[in-house]
C-alpha cells in the first residue's frame, strides 16, 4: 500500500517554518490586542499551527501509523468546543459591560 518515493517534493523543514511563523503571529496578536475576539482569533492561529505540526510529523516521521492524524482531529474538535464556550462568554461580557475589551473587566460580579 505504501510506496516509497525517491525524491521528496517539499522538505519537512518548510512546513515547520510555515507553522512556526503562524504560531508566533498568534503569540504577537495574543499579547498586543485588547479585544476579546481578537485574542480568540490569535488562539485559533496558535492551535492551527499545532495541527499542522501533528500532520507533518505523522506524514514525514511515522508514515505507517496514524497517531498524528487522530491527534489533529481531536485538537480540532476541542478547539471548536473552546471557541463556542468562549464566544458565549464574550457575548455575556458584552451584555454586561457594554463592550468586549479586557481592560474594562475588573470585577467578577457587580
Amino acid at each position: 500500500m505504501l510506496v516509497n518515493t525517491v525524491q521528496i517534493p517539499v522538505p519537512m523543514i518548510a512546513y515547520l517554518i510555515v507553522s512556526l511563523i503562524m504560531m508566533f503571529a498568534g503569540v504577537y496578536g495574543f499579547l498586543t490586542r485588547k479585544n476579546l475576539i481578537m485574542i480568540l482569533i490569535s488562539i485559533e492561529l496558535i492551535l492551527n499551527a499545532v495541527d499542522i505540526n501533528f500532520a507533518v510529523f505523522n506524514r514525514y516521521l511515522f508514515p505507517a501509523q496514524n497517531e498524528g492524524l487522530f491527534f489533529a482531529f481531536f485538537t480540532i474538535a476541542i478547539a471548536a468546543c473552546e471557541t463556542a464556550v468562549a464566544i458565549a462568554i464574550i457575548i455575556n461580557v458584552y451584555r454586561r459591560f457594554g463592550n468586549a475589551e479586557v481592560d474594562n473587566i475588573n470585577t467578577m460580579q457587580e
Binding site: L2, V3, N4, T5, I8, M12, Y60, L61, P63
Partner: peptide, 8 residues
C-alpha cells in the same frame, strides 16, 4: 532534512 517521507 531527509526524513522518511513515504507517500502513501
Amino acid at each position: 532534512k531527509v526524513a522518511g517521507y513515504l507517500k502513501g
